[in-house]
Design a protein around this nucleic acid. Structure first.
Lengths: 202, 202
DNA sequence: CTAGTTCTGTATCGATCGATACAGAACTAG
DNA sequence: CTAGTTCTGTATCGATCGATACAGAACTAG
């Protein structure tokens, strides 16, 4: 990945890879994997299809890299949330992060990890399975954090970390679907506040 | 819609319209609007594209009719749930219905109304907007039912019907997303039971 | 300068997309 | 029987899909 390296051999790239990937991410986020055609993608990226293939491999690889960027960008709230000192703080930060990430004014509404490839034809199996793994990974990380909370005495000993993580994930994904339907930030945040009024729910 | 009518003029239809629509619904449910190509649809329906166009108009019309069938079939639990005598009963029935409808062994996992067209390209705008309206309609009906519960004294006077309906909808859609990811019925039902342990949450 | 390497732009590939033209089959009415 | 109507099967339409061939541009190394 040694781009822009001085002393590199050959004609230098005429565009900013990071910026192109950012724009591709936004297109996938808004239109989904199958809804985003190469023409739409490359136009948004400001490059030709040839340059896209040279830089990213193919459409599926581009999607993978866009998802990585999404994880480290708009979805980074999850990692930060897991560092909250209490399980309640973790749950609160996750839901608030989800509301903010799915209703922002500067990007598509909804969550790329939920809407980009929920149901797809044959050509989208790879990306769909990738997103399933992505969502499961989020669940696992939250569950581990809640297990630690039980071990620490922050959550009561009879609390079920898997169940609580499942509950938080359910709310998060539900928020994403509704954000994609146009439900606004305030209403979703109020809903999240209501849900968190009882913690832990079990 | 006068099919099978004795005395009808012209060559009679060589296939069962209801059965063909049922099969189309299952394909849309599993593959989404853009993921379901005409070739896949007509093969599953057991008819040629010509017959499909003659009977249903075009792909988008076929999708509309498939969604109606979904509403009256797999999604009919919502209408039944709204007839429960208490708001708690309504919420319980909705979540249980959602779990069952999205994890059944005889049909695709997930909810057709959530996954069929969350994110789409230009050709899927119609179906996507149709599904947004479909989801909103569900929310409105639940909200009205909860408003009645407040009026009846079943819910406390300070309860917010919109917020409670939003909460139930969030859980329902979250369940749908996770069912599509392969989370099994028992786990989702346990999660729903946990969430309902406190009612109303506000 | 030349040789070697990499990127870009144009032009186009075969495959699939949704959709339709058209001839013939299958029915009713008389 | 004939005339009129509707459905079916084949064959194919233009448009778009993701992807690539190829020539030339733009760089480094020597």
């Amino acid at each position: 990945m040694a781009t822009k390296q001085s002393g590199a051999i050959g004609r230098p790239r005429g565009f900013d890879t990071d910026q192109a990937l950012e724009r591709a991410m936004l297109v996938f986020w808004e239109l989904g994997y199958e809804g985003a055609g190469l023409a739409t993608l490359t136009e948004a990226m400001g490059i030709s299809t040839t340059s896209m293939y040279a830089a990213f491999g193919n459409k599926e690889e581009l999607f993978r890299k866009a998802l990585e960027r999404y994880t480290e960008g708009p979805s980074a709230y999850l990692t930060r949330a897991l560092e909250e000192p209490t399980a309640f703080g973790v749950a609160t930060a996750i839901l608030e992060g989800a509301v903010r990430a799915t209703t922002g004014p500067t990007h598509p509404h909804g969550c790329m990890g939920v809407q980009a490839a929920l149901a797809v034809g044959a050509s989208g199996r790879g990306p769909r399975d990738l997103l399933i793994a992505w969502r499961n990974d989020g669940h696992f990380r939250v569950r581990e954090r809640f297990q630690r909370a039980v071990d620490d005495g922050d959550l009561p000993p009879q609390a079920d970390p898997d169940l609580l993580a499942r509950y938080v994930a359910t709310l998060t994904f539900g928020i994403a679907v509704q954000a994609a339907s146009g439900v606004d930030r305030d209403e979703l945040q109020a809903m999240a506040d209501t849900a968190l009024r009882v913690w832990p729910p079990a």
